[in-house]
Protein backbone atom coordinates (compact mmCIF):
# COMPACT_ATOMS: atom_id res chain seq x y z
CA UNK A 1 0.00 0.00 0.00
CA UNK A 2 1.11 3.55 -0.60
CA UNK A 3 2.68 5.64 2.09
CA UNK A 4 1.38 9.12 2.85
CA UNK A 5 3.79 11.54 1.18
CA UNK A 6 5.21 14.40 3.23
CA UNK A 7 6.16 17.12 0.79
CA UNK A 8 8.08 20.32 1.38
CA UNK A 9 6.86 23.30 -0.55
CA UNK A 10 9.43 25.88 -1.58
CA UNK A 11 8.13 29.16 -2.93
CA UNK A 12 10.96 30.73 -4.86
CA UNK A 13 11.41 34.30 -6.03
CA UNK A 14 14.57 35.41 -7.82
CA UNK A 15 16.59 32.54 -6.38
CA UNK A 16 15.36 33.19 -2.82
CA UNK A 17 13.14 30.99 -0.76
CA UNK A 18 10.23 33.13 0.37
CA UNK A 19 7.09 32.68 2.42
CA UNK A 20 3.91 34.65 2.77
CA UNK A 21 0.60 34.46 4.55
CA UNK A 22 -2.48 33.81 2.41
CA UNK A 23 0.09 33.70 -0.42
CA UNK A 24 0.82 37.40 0.19
CA UNK A 25 3.31 39.59 2.06
CA UNK A 26 6.24 37.55 0.91
CA UNK A 27 9.24 37.34 3.20
CA UNK A 28 12.72 36.20 2.26
CA UNK A 29 13.74 33.08 4.16
CA UNK A 30 16.98 31.95 2.58
CA UNK A 31 18.59 29.88 -0.11
CA UNK A 32 16.18 27.28 -1.58
CA UNK A 33 19.02 24.90 -2.42
CA UNK A 34 20.13 24.71 1.20
CA UNK A 35 16.59 24.19 2.41
CA UNK A 36 15.95 21.45 -0.17
CA UNK A 37 19.12 19.61 0.87
CA UNK A 38 18.27 19.91 4.54
CA UNK A 39 14.77 18.51 3.99
CA UNK A 40 16.12 15.70 1.82
CA UNK A 41 18.56 14.70 4.54
CA UNK A 42 15.72 14.76 7.07
CA UNK A 43 13.68 12.34 4.96
CA UNK A 44 11.28 14.47 2.93
CA UNK A 45 9.37 12.40 0.33
CA UNK A 46 9.06 15.01 -2.38
CA UNK A 47 9.94 18.61 -3.12
CA UNK A 48 7.51 21.07 -4.58
CA UNK A 49 8.97 24.22 -6.08
CA UNK A 50 6.80 27.15 -6.98
CA UNK A 51 8.20 30.01 -9.03
CA UNK A 52 6.44 32.99 -7.55
CA UNK A 53 7.67 35.62 -10.00
CA UNK A 54 7.13 33.46 -13.03
CA UNK A 55 7.88 36.31 -15.34
CA UNK A 56 8.02 35.63 -19.02
CA UNK A 57 11.54 36.96 -19.24
CA UNK A 58 13.22 35.53 -16.23
CA UNK A 59 13.13 31.75 -16.31
CA UNK A 60 16.85 31.42 -15.74
CA UNK A 61 16.79 31.79 -11.98
CA UNK A 62 14.20 29.07 -11.44
CA UNK A 63 16.02 26.76 -13.86
CA UNK A 64 19.23 27.25 -11.89
CA UNK A 65 17.46 26.34 -8.67
CA UNK A 66 15.83 23.21 -10.12
CA UNK A 67 19.03 22.15 -11.77
CA UNK A 68 20.93 22.32 -8.51
CA UNK A 69 18.25 20.56 -6.47
CA UNK A 70 17.74 17.82 -9.07
CA UNK A 71 21.44 17.02 -8.95
CA UNK A 72 21.64 16.73 -5.21
CA UNK A 73 18.27 15.57 -4.00
CA UNK A 74 17.16 12.05 -4.94
CA UNK A 75 13.43 12.29 -4.40
CA UNK A 76 10.79 13.53 -6.87
CA UNK A 77 10.68 17.21 -7.72
CA UNK A 78 7.51 18.92 -8.85
CA UNK A 79 7.84 22.42 -10.32
CA UNK A 80 5.35 25.05 -11.37
CA UNK A 81 4.53 28.71 -11.66
CA UNK A 82 4.45 30.54 -14.94
CA UNK A 83 4.11 27.54 -17.26
CA UNK A 84 2.27 28.85 -20.28
CA UNK A 85 3.21 26.44 -23.04
CA UNK A 86 4.49 22.99 -23.87
CA UNK A 87 7.88 24.56 -24.33
CA UNK A 88 7.91 26.05 -20.80
CA UNK A 89 7.11 22.63 -19.40
CA UNK A 90 9.75 20.97 -21.56
CA UNK A 91 12.42 23.35 -20.29
CA UNK A 92 11.62 22.55 -16.66
CA UNK A 93 11.51 18.80 -17.30
CA UNK A 94 14.82 18.97 -19.17
CA UNK A 95 16.39 20.75 -16.22
CA UNK A 96 15.47 18.20 -13.61
CA UNK A 97 11.77 18.51 -12.80
CA UNK A 98 9.95 15.17 -12.58
CA UNK A 99 6.48 16.66 -12.60
CA UNK A 100 5.15 20.06 -13.46
CA UNK A 101 2.13 21.86 -12.09
CA UNK A 102 -0.17 24.31 -13.85
CA UNK A 103 -2.46 26.90 -12.34
CA UNK A 104 -3.22 30.04 -14.36
CA UNK A 105 -2.52 28.42 -17.71
CA UNK A 106 -4.72 25.43 -16.86
CA UNK A 107 -7.62 27.80 -16.32
CA UNK A 108 -6.91 30.03 -19.30
CA UNK A 109 -6.00 27.24 -21.70
CA UNK A 110 -7.44 23.98 -20.36
CA UNK A 111 -6.31 22.12 -23.47
CA UNK A 112 -2.71 22.62 -22.29
CA UNK A 113 -3.45 19.99 -19.61
CA UNK A 114 -4.50 17.52 -22.30
CA UNK A 115 -1.58 18.36 -24.56
CA UNK A 116 1.04 17.97 -21.82
CA UNK A 117 -0.53 14.81 -20.54
CA UNK A 118 -0.42 13.28 -24.02
CA UNK A 119 3.25 14.12 -24.49
CA UNK A 120 4.67 13.51 -21.02
CA UNK A 121 2.11 11.15 -19.57
CA UNK A 122 -0.69 11.88 -17.16
CA UNK A 123 1.42 11.33 -14.09
CA UNK A 124 3.76 14.19 -15.04
CA UNK A 125 0.97 16.77 -15.09
CA UNK A 126 -0.31 18.23 -11.83
CA UNK A 127 -3.06 20.83 -11.72
CA UNK A 128 -2.69 23.26 -8.84
CA UNK A 129 -5.83 24.92 -7.53
CA UNK A 130 -5.77 27.90 -5.18
CA UNK A 131 -9.05 27.92 -3.32
CA UNK A 132 -10.76 30.65 -1.32
CA UNK A 133 -13.85 29.96 0.72
CA UNK A 134 -17.06 31.98 0.39
CA UNK A 135 -19.98 30.78 2.47
CA UNK A 136 -20.17 27.07 1.78
CA UNK A 137 -18.35 27.11 -1.50
CA UNK A 138 -14.81 27.43 -2.72
CA UNK A 139 -13.69 29.46 -5.70
CA UNK A 140 -10.52 29.09 -7.73
CA UNK A 141 -7.99 31.94 -7.83
CA UNK A 142 -4.89 32.58 -9.87
CA UNK A 143 -1.78 34.76 -9.51
CA UNK A 144 -1.05 33.59 -5.96
CA UNK A 145 -4.55 34.17 -4.75
CA UNK A 146 -4.95 37.67 -6.18
CA UNK A 147 -7.18 37.05 -9.15
CA UNK A 148 -10.62 35.47 -8.84
CA UNK A 149 -11.77 33.26 -11.70
CA UNK A 150 -15.31 32.57 -10.54
CA UNK A 151 -14.75 28.85 -11.05
CA UNK A 152 -16.19 26.46 -8.49
CA UNK A 153 -13.20 24.55 -7.09
CA UNK A 154 -14.83 21.13 -6.88
CA UNK A 155 -16.17 21.30 -10.43
CA UNK A 156 -12.89 22.65 -11.74
CA UNK A 157 -10.91 19.88 -10.04
CA UNK A 158 -13.13 17.26 -11.66
CA UNK A 159 -12.80 18.92 -15.03
CA UNK A 160 -9.00 19.02 -14.67
CA UNK A 161 -9.03 15.29 -13.97
CA UNK A 162 -11.10 14.61 -17.07
CA UNK A 163 -8.82 16.81 -19.17
CA UNK A 164 -5.86 14.60 -18.24
CA UNK A 165 -4.35 15.83 -14.98
CA UNK A 166 -2.56 13.07 -13.08
CA UNK A 167 -2.67 14.76 -9.69
CA UNK A 168 -4.39 17.69 -7.99
CA UNK A 169 -2.57 20.09 -5.67
CA UNK A 170 -5.14 21.92 -3.61
CA UNK A 171 -4.09 25.00 -1.63
CA UNK A 172 -6.40 26.77 0.77
CA UNK A 173 -5.60 30.46 0.49
CA UNK A 174 -7.59 31.11 3.66
CA UNK A 175 -5.32 28.82 5.68
CA UNK A 176 -2.07 29.23 3.76
CA UNK A 177 0.80 30.58 5.89
CA UNK A 178 -1.43 31.02 8.95
CA UNK A 179 -0.32 27.82 10.72
CA UNK A 180 -3.89 27.58 12.00
CA UNK A 181 -4.73 24.17 10.59
CA UNK A 182 -6.00 22.81 7.29
CA UNK A 183 -9.33 23.41 5.59
CA UNK A 184 -10.44 19.81 5.99
CA UNK A 185 -13.90 20.48 4.57
CA UNK A 186 -12.34 21.54 1.31
CA UNK A 187 -10.33 18.33 1.10
CA UNK A 188 -13.38 16.31 2.03
CA UNK A 189 -15.42 17.72 -0.86
CA UNK A 190 -12.53 17.23 -3.30
CA UNK A 191 -11.96 13.61 -2.25
CA UNK A 192 -15.62 12.84 -2.91
CA UNK A 193 -15.29 13.49 -6.63
CA UNK A 194 -11.63 12.96 -7.54
CA UNK A 195 -10.11 9.64 -8.62
CA UNK A 196 -6.52 10.81 -9.08
CA UNK A 197 -4.09 11.48 -6.21
CA UNK A 198 -4.67 14.69 -4.24
CA UNK A 199 -1.99 16.68 -2.42
CA UNK A 200 -3.22 19.14 0.17
CA UNK A 201 -1.44 22.36 1.07
CA UNK A 202 -1.90 25.27 3.43
CA UNK A 203 -2.31 25.69 7.13
CA UNK A 204 -0.25 23.17 9.07
CA UNK A 205 0.72 24.59 12.47
CA UNK A 206 0.87 21.69 14.90
CA UNK A 207 0.88 17.91 14.77
CA UNK A 208 -2.73 17.64 15.91
CA UNK A 209 -3.82 19.46 12.73
CA UNK A 210 -3.07 16.23 10.88
CA UNK A 211 -5.55 14.15 12.82
CA UNK A 212 -8.71 14.86 10.84
CA UNK A 213 -6.85 15.47 7.62
CA UNK A 214 -5.25 12.05 7.19
CA UNK A 215 -8.62 10.35 7.72
CA UNK A 216 -9.65 11.79 4.36
CA UNK A 217 -6.76 9.88 2.75
CA UNK A 218 -4.95 12.53 0.76
CA UNK A 219 -2.03 11.18 -1.24
CA UNK A 220 0.33 13.84 0.08
CA UNK A 221 0.60 16.80 2.43
CA UNK A 222 2.64 19.83 1.45
CA UNK A 223 4.28 21.82 4.23
CA UNK A 224 6.07 25.15 4.22
CA UNK A 225 6.01 27.48 7.26
CA UNK A 226 6.24 24.77 9.91
CA UNK A 227 9.39 23.45 8.28
CA UNK A 228 10.95 26.73 7.20
CA UNK A 229 10.60 28.27 10.67
CA UNK A 230 11.68 24.98 12.28
CA UNK A 231 8.50 24.71 14.25
CA UNK A 232 8.28 21.02 13.45
CA UNK A 233 10.77 18.44 12.31
CA UNK A 234 10.07 16.05 9.40
CA UNK A 235 11.05 13.05 11.51
CA UNK A 236 8.66 14.04 14.30
CA UNK A 237 5.84 14.63 11.83
CA UNK A 238 6.36 11.18 10.29
CA UNK A 239 6.65 9.56 13.68
CA UNK A 240 3.40 11.16 14.80
CA UNK A 241 1.57 10.03 11.66
CA UNK A 242 2.87 6.46 11.96
CA UNK A 243 2.57 5.98 15.73
CA UNK A 244 -0.40 8.11 16.70
CA UNK A 245 -2.50 8.17 13.54
CA UNK A 246 -1.52 4.67 12.38
CA UNK A 247 -0.98 5.76 8.81
CA UNK A 248 2.06 4.45 6.98
CA UNK A 249 4.84 6.79 5.94
CA UNK A 250 8.18 6.17 4.26
CA UNK A 251 11.13 5.57 6.52
CA UNK A 252 14.76 5.10 5.52
CA UNK A 253 15.58 2.71 8.35
Amino acid sequence: MNKLRIISRLDVKNEYLIKGIHLEGLRRIGNPNEFALKYYNQGIDEILISDVVASLYDRDSILKVINYIAQNVFVPICVGGGIRSVNDAKLLLRNGADKIFLNTAAIKKPDLITKLSKIYGKSTVVVSIEAKRKLNKWFAFTKNGREPTGLDVIKWAKKAEILGAGEILITSIDQEGTQKGFDTNLLKEIMKVINIPVVVSGGMGKLEDLKNLVKLKPSGIALASVLHYEKLDIKDIKKYIADKLKVKVRSEK
Binding site: M1, N2, K3, R5, D45, K122, S123, G166, E167, N195, I196, P197, V198, S219, G220, R250
Partner: peptide
Protein backbone atom coordinates in the same frame (compact mmCIF):
# COMPACT_ATOMS: atom_id res chain seq x y z
CA UNK B 1 -6.16 6.27 -7.20
CA UNK B 2 -4.71 6.06 -10.70
CA UNK B 3 -1.99 7.09 -11.53
CA UNK B 4 -0.33 5.15 -8.75
CA UNK B 5 1.94 7.85 -7.33
CA UNK B 6 3.95 7.40 -4.18
CA UNK B 7 6.21 5.27 -2.05
CA UNK B 8 5.72 1.56 -1.59
Amino acid sequence: KVPHIGWA
